[in-house]
Simulated scan of single mutants.
Amino acid sequence: MINILCFGDSNTFGTNPKGGRHAWNTRWPGRLQVLLGPEYYVIEEGMGGRTTVWDDPLEPGRCGIQALPIALQSHKPLDLVILALGTNDCKVHLNATPKIIAKGMENLCNLVQHFDYGPGYKVPQILVVSPIHIGEDMDHCPFASFDETSPVKSRNLAPLYGQVAKSLGCMYIDAASLAQASSLDQLHMDAKNHGALAEGIMTVVKSFFEP
Rank of each mutant, 00 (worst) to 15 (best):
K76C: 07
P77V: 12
P77K: 13
L78H: 06
D79P: 01
D79G: 06
D79M: 06
D79I: 07
V81E: 09
V81F: 08
V81C: 11
I82F: 14
I82D: 09
L85K: 10
T87F: 14
T87I: 14
N88G: 01
D89E: 04
C90R: 09
C90A: 08
K91Y: 06
V92D: 13
L94V: 00
L94A: 01
L94C: 07
A96T: 01
P98Y: 03
K99E: 14
K99M: 07
A102W: 07
K103V: 01
K103S: 13
M105N: 03
M105Y: 06
E106W: 10
N107Y: 13
N107I: 04
N107W: 14
L108Y: 08
L108I: 07
C109G: 04
L111W: 02
L111A: 00
L111F: 04
V112Q: 09
V112K: 03
Q113M: 15
H114L: 07
H114Y: 14
Y117T: 10
P119M: 09
G120N: 06
G120F: 08
G120T: 08
K122T: 11
P124K: 04
P124V: 04
P124S: 02
Q125E: 15
V128Q: 15
V129A: 13
V129G: 12
S130C: 07
S130G: 07
P131V: 08
I132A: 12
I132W: 10
I134E: 03
D137H: 12
C141A: 07
P142V: 03
P142S: 05
S145L: 07
E148Y: 15
E148M: 10
T149L: 05
T149C: 04
S150K: 04
S150E: 02
